[in-house]
Design a protein around this nucleic acid. Structure first.
Ligand code: ZN
Ligand code: ZN
Ligand code: ZN
Ligand code: ZN
Lengths: 159, 159
DNA sequence: GGGTATTTGATACAAAGTATCATTAAGCGG
DNA sequence: CCGCTTAATGATACTTTGTATCAAATACCC
């Protein structure tokens, strides 16, 4: 029988890991087991995770993960642009469209925790403009909009 | 001789504390010594401070400040809208124009730490729009743009 | 498969933020 | 000005989040 790789279950995840590999090769960066595991875990979580939640999910598979190692992998993946950090919730999420380098905005539902990654031209342009107007050469833009998503508003009669 | 209040040194600070008092009365909230001290300290710092930096500045005057008490005062002042939290630097800063309720953007210089509070109509409108488009009823918007300010770019020959 | 620079493991620590409950004081009415 | 009531603080201990250091391991190139 064929060797039973644990992959190939979710094609989306497979594609993301392939993309990670190609990104690393292109930049001459090393792709390690941990880095793969961290991205993989974030992707299959399907939501934002704190570094320590992530750690808990990694431990069963890799007992020697530590906070430091998780943060290191996260930093690496963020530099590559395949993971983002949500400043307002101190958590991390896999990028939803890592094909292009991008400045994104996040919409966060405070009730169900859903996070939507948006790429709004208007906001991008307006922030760039503001930076120029005030003389700042911007290199990082955090836009995190918190509220209640449509689903959650519907499902709550009131209050 | 007249009683030697330690106030009246900086009219801007005085005005801010008066405003704080009025805000509290208007809302039936109590204005305590600590809350005054926290706002006062943030104002005279003239920059963003972490909660613990703030604590250090309060301790000489009020030896029984604790992390918990500082965070409580900060939460109170933020609810009133006279203090903002910078998510991307985990710090707090006095509002630069607390007259009106507002959604603001922050520009942060990563070299000198300067923070500028802006109120850009275009960004406000664009974020609101995005929220509507994606079905979110927004109640908090974090817009924090980091880069290098004009002064710092000028003063650095290169790198 | 071996060599080397990079990454990780292990440990310890620093920084940021919160829970709890007994005690204190702000603001109000008399 | 005094005492009452309720909200806020003090004290303590704890949780969560993030880093420093250096020896050991491993990804990648050949
Ligand atoms: Zn993205
Ligand atoms: Zn929701
Ligand atoms: Zn403000
Ligand atoms: Zn600067």
């Amino acid at each position: 029988m064929a060797k039973s790789h644990k992959t190939l279950r979710t094609p989306g995840l497979e594609r993301a890991l392939d993309r990670l590999e190609h990104l690393c090769r292109a930049r001459g960066q090393r792709l390690t087991r941990q880095r793969r595991a961290v991205l993989s875990s974030l992707l299959s979580a399907g939501r934002a995770l704190s570094a320590y939640e992530l750690l808990e999910r990694l431990r069963p598979e890799d007992a020697k993960s530590t906070p430091a190692s998780v943060y290191r992998s996260l930093d690496f993946l963020m530099a590559l642009g395949v993971v983002h950090r949500l400043e307002s919730t101190r958590s991390f999420i896999a990028c939803e469209h890592p094909e292009t380098p991008h400045w994104v905005q996040f919409l966060i539902c405070r009730r169900c925790g859903q996070v939507v990654e948006a790429e709004d031209e208007r906001i991008a342009a307006a922030t760039e403009r503001l930076g120029q107007r005030l003389g700042f050469a911007l290199d990082q833009r955090v836009v995190e909009l918190t509220g209640v998503c449509e689903g959650c508003r519907g499902s709550a009669a009131r209050h």
